[in-house]
Design a protein around this nucleic acid. Structure first.
Length: 489
RNA sequence: GUCCCUAUCGUCUAGCCCGGCCUAGGACACCGCCCUUUCACGGCGGCGACGGGGGUUCGAAUCCCCCUGGGGACGCCA
């Protein structure tokens, strides 16, 4: 008799079981920003760790917008966050899911807890609580809720209230953090947190649990400023009858003075780095190395990261944001980047600087000439500026030093030689240039530097023949002539 | 104040879990030399750390305890 099992995709029931188990344990992680501003460097790293892990484990990366604070959440912020994640190359598999669309779900869950006697109405006013908190703090006590309404039996009609969770007061809550190890809190340290505000909207600690559970998130990977929330959330998982996920808390990013990274320390917005001429791969590479390592390796492509990233190699302690190292990585990626791609990006920055690109030289050639000299695209755009326009912006000290009358005759010789050259390529120009050196008996530098100033206005830049090639025959000759006209003593 | 986390060069880190291979490795930054038509790039070299005190051990950066430093949380923010 032929073996046919129902709904079994393979001939082996055992293998099927294993497959199913595999599907069940598939990693599901999420990034859950609140849309009250741009995507922060710290948030980006958290998102990156989640993204990397999901890709590596072939799991699912969910994006959830935590907008329960209706007053402070904006669509612009959502767009900004989405744009930044896209720029960094982190696509989510599910979402964005908006919590503001799920208020009915939260309300039902709160009702469930109230019905089961696991939550209660609290009529204390915000002002009263504030006073009690301050008093406790000045008396050196822990400023936790005193439980005034916890034992109240009757409900008071027509009086505003919040819903509080009736938290277990005895025992301890322990969880095994994937990064930090075992962490234990005494339950007496925790108070009855608010689940629902006076305006009937749910609060963060509650919705985060409901959503993570409902979305079947099995690893909560987030900043370690959430460690203190974790025991309360575990209690909520248990009260709601949900399985408790695993947790992994990544250490914070600090500023140079070891305080929490903020605007005081420089740009903290991901997109600000794009505007400052940074490449996304540089930021990704920098961010991932902040807290994670793979031996002595410094340079990682996204593909490598997906293969190599693991929680085991994430450090436990906070790290300081070091703009210099990010800059070095950026210069690395500019040096090794594809000129065609960089040209497109450079073009945007040139436009930003108000430079007319259309009648100018090949951008790719400029990129190649400047790749080794630019740490950012903004820098590159500034250095590229001298190839555009008709007027040369002279650095006065350079002009005074190199554009002197005694060079006039030599420039005439150079001009004549260049004018006779019709194959306008670097190698050919190099021959022409050397010919002039021979004719005049000058050393390379004695001619190259004045010529560089004449053509670009500055003493710095790429090889003189590369400059001439990029500039083109007409512009080179015109600028040389222009320089002769302004020679001084 | 209470609770939680944490501790290797100025910074990011390797090594720690499974003590000896560590005279503590790499990277950024800084300094010097070389290369060089300039500026860069690059190459070579230098500076530079196991927070302190107790244990355990023949032996501790590595294991244990205390202290100290740093960070976080203590919201009707997330």
């Amino acid at each position: 008799m032929q073996y046919k099992s129902v709904g079994c995709p393979t001939d082996s029931p055992l293998l099927f079981l294993r497959l199913q188990e595999n599907v069940m344990s598939k990693l599901r992680v999420r990034f859950a920003p609140s849309p009250t501003g741009y995507l922060h460097i710290g948030g980006a790293r958290t998102a990156l760790f989640n993204f990397l892990l999901a890709r590596k484990e072939q799991g699912t990366f969910v994006l959830r917008i935590e907008d329960t604070d209706v007053a402070r959440s904006t669509q612009e912020s959502v767009d900004a966050i989405l744009q930044a994640m896209d720029w960094l190359g982190m696509a989510c598999d599910e979402g964005p899911v908006y919590q503001s669309d799920r208020f009915d779900l939260y309300r039902a869950k709160i009702q469930q807890l109230v019905t089961e006697g696991k939550a209660y109405r609290c009529y204390c006013t915000a002002e009263e609580l504030e006073q009690k908190r301050e008093l406790a703090l000045t008396q050196g006590r822990k400023p936790k809720y005193d439980g005034t309404c916890r034992q109240r039996q009757a409900t008071i009609e027509n009086q505003p209230y919040v819903v509080r969770f009736k938290a277990p007061q005895e025992g301890a809550t322990t969880f095994n953090d994937r990064i930090k190890g075992d962490i234990t809190f005494q339950n007496e340290e925790l108070d009855d947190l608010i689940l629902q505000r006076t305006d009937s909207t749910p609060t963060y600690n509650f919705v985060v649990v409901v959503d993570d559970a409902e979305m079947k998130i099995n690893l909560v990977l987030r900043g370690d400023d959430h460690i203190n929330n974790t025991p309360r959330q575990i209690m909520l998982y248990e009260a709601l009858g949900y399985p408790v996920p695993e947790f992994a808390h990544v250490p914070m990013i600090l500023g140079a003075d070891k305080s929490r990274l903020s605007k005081r320390h420089g740009a903290t917005s991901v997109m600000a780095y794009r505007d400052m001429g940074y490449l996304p791969e540089a930021l990704v590479n920098y961010l991932v190395r902040l807290g994670w390592s793979h031996g002595d390796q410094e340079i990682f492509s996204m593909e490598e990261l997906i293969n190599l990233f693991s929680l085991e190699n994430v450090g436990k302690s906070a790290s300081v944001f070091n703009p210099e190292k990010l800059l070095w990585l950026n210069s690395h990626y500019i040096k090794t980047g594809h000129p065609a791609r960089l040209a497109v990006l450079l073009c945007e920055h040139l436009k930003q600087e108000g430079i007319e690109v259309s009648p100018g030289p090949e951008l790719e050639a400029i990129v190649v000439a400047l790749q080794d000299r630019s740490k950012t695209l903004v820098e590159m755009a500034q250095q590229a500026q001298c190839f555009f326009g008709t007027e040369v912006q002279f650095d006065e000290t350079a002009a005074a030093k190199f554009l002197t009358r005694d060079i006039g005759e030599i420039f005439e010789t150079l001009f004549a030689a260049l004018e006779a050259c019709h194959d306008w390529k670097e190698e050919v120009l190099d021959e022409v240039f050397k010919g002039v050196l021979q004719a005049t008996g000058l050393k390379f530098g004695k001619l190259a530097q004045p010529a560089r100033v004449a053509l670009t206005g500055s003493t710095n830049g790429p090889s003189i023949c590369v400059i001439m090639e990029i500039l083109g025959r007409e512009k080179t000759l015109a600028r040389l002539q222009g320089a002769v006209a302004r020679l001084c003593d």
